[in-house]
């Protein structure tokens, strides 16, 4: 099974990638890790005649911390996130979630930002981006702009990125010392897509939850921020009863799809259970 005919253009910088996209119009796709794009081209679910490869764009390769934020350039691979060493609980959360992203050979090639651009409803990174108020930086013919995670996702595989724009970086705020983090996922086999997943970060002071951030994967066509669950938890003592109430609120916030191996009802139940597990893990390590 061959890929359909394509032409391949290698960009030497982000600006060159934008110029190449402008030349090719709607027939172009941006290639970074290619671990989703190339297989969808094989399936014929995505049809594009031109691939603009970012691999040569050294200005998109960086991973850096500045001003209390972690900035991941478009070429940062899942494997680099899996190995991230950083003096902030954010690194712990990203490392835990990375272990659920496909399997090692895919993580060696696929990129963090590519996952945000692909916007698969089951993607771990999309759920965390939503939970942690990530910002997406896109560059197009009109220049650069930033899009908040709450505005970024428009539907399955649909984002605010225009076809002539490149997602150049994703920025995540650090969580700060003392934050507890948790991640829990349900999948059919190791390496499968998430049937459902929950990621969270909590802050606790004087025995009370002061802040909670919860993101859900595959709870709807876009990643879900479980705001009601966060509200239910903040101000509580983080007891098992409080966790249960938050988990119920998260399940209620979901609008899950039904598929042969996972009915909507089952998925909603699983989202509640996973939220409780992630919160319990996070509360257990919050200082």
């Amino acid at each position: 099974m061959k890929l359909p005919p394509i032409s391949y253009r290698r960009a030497g910088s982000a600006d060159e990638a934008v110029a190449l996209l402008a030349e090719s119009g709607d027939d172009a796709a941006v290639l970074a890790g290619g671990q989703s794009l190339l297989l969808e081209l094989r399936y014929g679910d995505v049809r594009r005649g031109v691939l603009v490869d970012l691999a040569g764009a050294a200005d998109l390769a960086g991973l850096a911390v500045a001003d209390g934020e972690l900035r991941l350039g478009a070429l940062v691979r899942h494997a680099a996130v899996e190995r991230l060493e950083l003096d902030d609980p954010l690194a712990r959360l990203l490392r835990r979630a990375a272990a659920y992203v496909a399997h090692p050979p895919i993580r060696a090639r696929g990129t963090f930002a590519g996952s945000l651009a692909w916007a698969h409803p089951a993607a771990e990174w999309c759920a965390l981006a939503r939970a942690l108020d990530a910002r997406m930086t896109v560059r197009g013919p009109a220049g650069e702009r930033e899009v908040a995670a709450e505005d970024w996702f428009r539907g399955p595989h649909r984002t605010q990125r225009a076809p002539d724009e490149v997602l150049t970086a994703v920025t995540l705020p650090l969580l700060g010392a003392g934050a507890g983090v948790g991640f829990a996922e349900l999948r059919r086999t190791s390496g499968s897509f998430a049937l459902a997943a929950a990621g969270c970060a909590v802050h606790v002071a004087a025995g009370r939850v002061t802040r909670a951030r919860i993101g859900l994967a595959n709870a709807a066509g876009v990643p879900v921020r479980a705001a009601e669950a966060e509200a239910a938890l903040v101000g509580s003592d983080g007891s098992p009863d409080a966790v249960r109430a938050a988990a119920d609120a998260a399940a209620a916030a979901a609008d899950p799809a039904s598929e042969p191996h996972c009915s909507a009802e089952y998925r909603r139940h699983a989202l509640g259970v996973l939220t409780a597990r992630a919160l319990t893990e996070a509360l257990g390590e919050a200082a």
Partner: peptide, 22 residues
């Protein structure tokens, strides 16, 4: 399509799916 791993090779010191790399 990247699932089975039969086509795994090393590229620049990393094991990858050679079906998902141009």
């Amino acid at each position: 399509h990247g699932v089975c791993g039969s086509c795994t090779v090393s590229v620049d010191g990393e094991a990858v799916r050679s079906c998902l790399v141009l």
